[in-house]
Every structure is written in structure tokens, then in C-alpha cells.
Amino acid sequence: MLADFPLDALPGHYIRRLQQIAVAVFLEETAEFGITPVQFAALQAVRQQPGLDQRSLARTIGYDTSTIGGVVDRLEKRGLLQRQASPSDRRVRQLVLTTEGERVLMLIIAPMQRAQHRMLAPLPPDQRDEFLRMLVALVQGNNELARAPGELG
């Protein structure tokens, strides 16, 4: 016998829907740059830690190591980041932002922040920090269950 589980009682359903909304709002606000949320995360992580290799980048942003190469390929093709040989291990390619990558990151900050504000706008201002705190707790508490566990800050 199948149990009847209404979707509106399942947190996973709302988490999936919120992810769809978050991506849609981000893409709408940042449309002129043609950057996805994952590409933004990758650029920001490389900006914060120049010289990351692809595996470390994937771990830093919680992205699958088998598909991060495609993200890096697209960003490199657009001239936003470069792969450079590591001085200590020629097999390792370190990632660095290009001048254009730095420029795009600086320009995308305001639209990215508008997207974040729009995502939280339905909540009363006094509940937004608490909501973010709860999201972080859920991700931290379930990180090891992820297909691509991330480094937690």
C-alpha cells in the first residue's frame, strides 16, 4: 500500500522549488553577464584563493569533481580565468582570474546582491538572518550526505 504524502508536507519539495527560484532570480538579475550561479561561485572562490586547483575548487564550492572541468572550460574560453602550471607540480593546473574575470566579478556584485535581496524579500526583515542561519545549519548538518560535499566556512 502506498502512503499518501502531500507535497506541501515535504521539506525536500520546498527546498527543490527554492533552488529553482534562486537560480531563476540570479539569472534574471545577472543576465547581461551570462554567468550562472555555479560560475559565479567558481570565480569568487578563485578570487578569494588564487591558485586553487580544480579539485580544490570543486570541494570549496560543493560541486562535483567530474563536472567542474566543464565549468572551468567555459570560464576559460570566455577569458575570465586561466589555468597555469603549478610551480611545485607540473601536473597540477592552478586557477587564476584574468583581468576580465576581475572586472566581471566587480560588475556583477550589485546584480548578485539584488538577487539575494529578492530571494529573501517575502520574509519580514527581522526573520532573514534567522532563515539564513537555519539554511547554514541544514547544509552543515547534512554536508557529508551531499553528492559533492563542500568545505564549510
Rank of each mutant, 00 (worst) to 15 (best):
V46T: 09
G150I: 08
F33R: 07
L80A: 01
R147L: 09
Q19Y: 14
F40W: 14
R93Q: 15
Q84L: 11
G141P: 01
V72Y: 00
Q54I: 05
L97K: 02
E102Q: 10
A9E: 13
Q44P: 00
Y14G: 12
I61A: 07
Q127N: 08
N143W: 01
G70R: 09
H13R: 15
L138K: 12
P6F: 10
G79E: 00
L120I: 06
I21A: 14
A148M: 06
E151I: 12
Y14R: 13
R91D: 14
T98W: 01
G34V: 01
V139W: 11
Q82L: 10
R16N: 13
R114W: 10
P11D: 05
T67N: 14
S66W: 10
E32M: 08
R90T: 07
P111R: 11
P149N: 04
R91W: 07
Q44V: 04
R93K: 15
G141F: 02
L57D: 03
P37I: 03
Q19E: 13
L75K: 02
P125W: 08
P111E: 11
Y14H: 14
R128Q: 05
V72T: 00
D8E: 13
Q113P: 00
A137C: 02
Q39N: 08
P111Q: 12
R147W: 06
Q82E: 07
R128F: 05
L7G: 12
T36D: 04
I35K: 06
I35T: 07
L81W: 00
A42T: 05
D53V: 02
R91S: 11
A121V: 10
R133K: 07
A42S: 08
A58M: 04
L120H: 08
P37Q: 06
A115W: 07
Q44E: 11
Y14I: 06
L81H: 00
A148E: 05
L97V: 01
P37S: 08
D8N: 14
L105G: 02
K77R: 15
I15F: 15
A58S: 06
V71N: 06
V72D: 00
V104T: 04
S56K: 12
V71Y: 07
S88Y: 14
V92I: 09
L43G: 04
G153K: 15
Q39E: 14
R78A: 09
Q20G: 13
G79F: 00
A115N: 06
A110I: 12
R78H: 11
R16D: 11
L75V: 02
A42M: 04
Q48S: 09
R47T: 02
A146H: 10
L132Y: 07
S56C: 04
Q140D: 10
Q49A: 07
Q19R: 14
T30A: 01
G62T: 04
S56H: 11
R17P: 00
A41K: 12
I35S: 01
V96T: 12
T60L: 11
D64R: 15
H13C: 12
F40T: 05
G79K: 01
Q140I: 06
